[in-house]
């Protein structure tokens, strides 16, 4: 009886450790979401102070990554998790790398926002960047929700959403080329806009990666580099 109690206790501690780890990843996700939304606001409003704030706050994201990474190593070393638990840890180690990169992209956008703020602003206040930004932000939000709820369906939806983002990115590039050909004076600004769009597109890719880890974590299938639509049909069989 006593022995049973102890095992129960240990596994409960273990459960709590895993649950705390998952919460820490989501906390990091929340921070990254806030960083991205601030960076986009800095672009749209031309707020250089806000942009620099985002750039300066990136260290918080990095610090969280290091902490979670250490905690993962600790759990791997002391608990030797198996099956679902192991997949969870592996997925978390990969997820935080992508989240950290999203943080870096947000930092880049914040910095570019502070540069764009002092240049001439187009009359539409970067509407296309705002649209792309909100799209990507929504994607990241859905990704973290899918991670929180271990929701495979939502993950697949996000992975498909990435194609839309890529298309929007292409459109912005094409538009930028037109602007540059019209008037070479635009080149400097359009180059910065292109960098921002590129960073947003990368964030979309990182979100997609995280969703793939969620699918891996829940179903134990590796859907990376495969046709997700086909595998989705496969899973519903």
């Amino acid at each position: 009886m006593e022995a049973g109690d102890i095992t129960d206790h240990i596994s409960r501690r273990f459960n709590k450790d895993l649950e705390d780890l998952r919460s820490a990843v989501l906390t990091m996700g929340g921070l990254v979401e806030t960083q991205l939304s601030k960076a986009i606001a800095a672009i749209v409003k031309g707020d250089s102070a806000l942009g620099l704030e985002v750039a300066n706050d990136d260290y918080k994201v990095n610090a969280l990554e290091v902490n979670i990474d250490e905690e993962c190593s600790r759990i791997l070393a002391t608990r030797a998790p198996a099956a679902g638990d192991l997949r969870l840890i592996v997925a978390i180690i990969k997820t935080i790398t992508d989240l950290e990169r999203i943080g870096d992209e947000a930092e880049k956008i914040g910095f570019l926002a502070s540069q764009l703020a002092v240049m001439d602003r187009p009359s539409d206040s970067y509407r296309e960047l705002k649209n792309l930004g909100n799209h990507v932000l929504q994607m990241l939000h859905d990704t973290m929700n899918a991670f929180a709820r271990l929701d495979v369906k939502a993950s697949i939806a996000v992975v498909r959403e990435d194609e839309e983002v890529d298309a929007e990115y292409d459109a912005i590039n094409r538009q930028g080329i037109t602007f540059m050909m019209e008037d070479p004076q635009n080149i400097k600004r359009v180059m910065n806009v292109t960098w921002v769009a590129r960073a947003l597109e990368r964030i979309g890719d990182h979100s997609k990666n995280i969703c793939e880890y969620v699918i891996y974590m829940v179903e134990g299938r590796n859907v990376r580099h495969t046709d997700i639509i086909k595998s989705a049909i496969h899973s519903s069989d």
Partner: peptide, 17 residues
């Protein structure tokens, strides 16, 4: 779906956490 999940896993604003 969210029953049993920690509330700050869904409402992830750092200030709220």
């Amino acid at each position: 779906q969210d029953r049993g999940h920690r509330v700050d896993n869904i409402l992830r604003d750092p200030a709220f956490g």
